[in-house]
């Protein structure tokens, strides 16, 4: 019956691996990929906008509060709560009571596991005790390892910045839409006219 305990230790340890892997280094940014791109001119538009299909940026959607099937909106599309990815995403504050309950449960698990192993007689009991001490030691050491310093600084690369001519300099609206596989840049009349006049020379410092 020591196998269940061994299994739990193994699963618990594996569950902590991702935390170790990303303890101090941010996950790598997704690789660049080619996507379709279209520039459209809409003379009636009130402003320029960049339209990006959601499938190209892999957004996450939380289930609707209370569960169930998402409500149906215009055109049969689901109405969802959108969660921002990347730097703009704010990690929700963790409930400190949850951490406290987890700590108490973990302590009880270790305590009860120890009592169970010690009460077992014979060689298997001694082996189990050794296993518990070893597992406890590993967990204790790993917590010290996690209390780590930041990542080592990356050597600064000197890059020559090439200033390119500017075809358009202004503001636009960023829209995320469902469906489609093409990024669209819709230009209003003013922006289109600005582009037609030709690129401006870069303002170097």
């Amino acid at each position: 019956m020591r196998y269940p305990l061994l299994t739990v230790f193994a699963v618990f340890g594996l569950g902590l691996v991702p935390h170790v892997a990303f303890a101090d280094l941010a996950p790598p940014p997704p690789a660049a990929k080619e996507v379709k791109f279209v520039v459209e001119v809409d003379e009636k538009a009130k402003g320029s906008k960049l339209i990006v299909p959601q499938t190209l940026v892999n957004p996450r959607f939380r289930p609707a509060p209370g569960g169930g099937v998402p409500k149906e909106g215009n055109g049969g599309l689901a109405v969802l709560e959108y969660e921002v990815e990347g730097d703009a995403a704010v990690e929700p504050a963790r409930n400190r009571n949850h951490l406290m309950i987890a700590g108490v449960a973990f302590t009880l698990a270790l305590g009860l596991g120890g009592i169970w192993i010690v009460r077992r007689t014979g060689r298997s009991g001694a082996r189990g005790l050794a296993l518990l001490v070893a597992a406890g030691g590993v967990l204790a050491v790993s917590t010290v390892v996690w209390a780590n310093a930041g990542p080592p600084p990356k050597p600064k690369e000197k890059k020559e910045v090439m200033l390119l001519p500017v075809a358009f300099d202004g503001k636009l609206t960023l829209e995320m839409v469902r469906g489609g596989d093409t990024i669209k840049l819709v230009l209003d009349k003013e922006a289109y006219d600005a582009i037609k006049t030709g690129p401006k020379k870069p303002e170097g410092k």
Binding site: M1, R2, P4, L5, V8, F12, A105, F106, L108, A109, L110, L112, G113, W116, R119, R120
Partner: peptide, 9 residues
Amino acid sequence: GWVWPVAFF
């Protein structure tokens, strides 16, 4: 006896 440690884990 292993049930309770596993449950609390």
